[in-house]
Simulated assay, not measured.
Amino acid sequence: MTEPTPCPIRVLFDRPCIPNNTGATMRLSAITGCEFHVAGPLGFDLDDTKLRRAGLDYRDQAKFYAHQNLDEAYAALLPARVFAFSARASRPFTDVRFQSGDVLLFGPEPTGLAPEVLADSRTTDILQLPMLPGSRSLNLASTAAVAVYEVWRQFGYGTR
């Protein structure tokens, strides 16, 4: 079996509030090789115990970048296609043929992405993970993991 190569995607959390989700996504970055960016203001300190616990010993292996705000993150990431994830969207994320360097954008845990972020001209499309009717949303780190693994699957886990 051929060894996988890093997932060529970039995950961006806008104003994350729960350190466990950010730590778990740092671990996702280390395991898959995707870049992980956070845009502040953050709802916790980057030295938070819960963040370190969730990231385990993978934190130093993650491709992790912290930005002061979303505009600063965009300055570092663009030009690129930006796919915003929202439980209110109607297009399934599996309908997209992802490209190397695409950005997967996720909003803060209690509210999701703000309407102005979803309407921003830098947002290429708004996508959702299918859920049963009446469901509010999936955990942020879980949503990011599902999306990253779909992108990596589309790239053949880098083994092609």
Results as ranks from 00 to 15, higher is better:
N69W: 02
N69P: 11
N69L: 06
L70W: 04
D71V: 12
D71Y: 01
E72L: 07
E72I: 08
E72M: 11
A73N: 06
Y74H: 13
A75L: 13
A75G: 10
A75D: 14
A76G: 01
A76Q: 11
A76I: 04
L77V: 09
L78Y: 00
L78K: 02
L78M: 13
P79D: 02
P79L: 06
P79M: 06
P79H: 06
R81F: 01
R81W: 03
R81A: 12
F83Q: 12
A84C: 08
A84I: 07
F85V: 09
F85W: 12
S86Y: 05
S86F: 02
A87W: 01
A89K: 12
A89T: 09
S90I: 11
S90G: 12
P92K: 11
F93K: 04
T94K: 13
T94Q: 14
T94C: 01
D95C: 07
D95Q: 15
D95L: 07
V96M: 08
V96F: 05
V96T: 15
R97S: 15
R97E: 14
R97H: 15
F98S: 04
G101I: 06
G101T: 06
D102E: 05
D102W: 03
D102F: 04
L104G: 07
L105E: 08
L105A: 06
F106Y: 13
G107Y: 11
P108M: 13
P110M: 03
G112N: 08
L113G: 04
L113F: 02
A114T: 11
P115V: 08
P115Y: 09
P115E: 09
P115G: 07
E116F: 11
E116H: 15
E116P: 00
E116V: 06
E116M: 03
V117G: 04
V117D: 02
A119N: 14
A119M: 05
D120K: 02
D120R: 07
S121M: 01
R122M: 00
R122V: 00
R122A: 04
T123G: 04
T124P: 04
D125Y: 05
D125P: 05
D125N: 13
D125G: 06
I126P: 00
I126K: 12
I126E: 11
L127C: 05
L127N: 09
Q128F: 08
Q128R: 15
P130F: 05
P130M: 10
M131D: 07
M131Y: 03
L132Q: 14
P133H: 03
P133M: 03
P133S: 11
R136H: 09
S137C: 12
S137T: 13
L138E: 09
L140D: 06
L140S: 05
S142V: 15
S142H: 14
A144E: 12
A144R: 11
A144S: 12
A145S: 15
A145M: 12
A145Q: 11
V146E: 02
V146G: 01
V146Q: 05
V146W: 03
A147H: 10
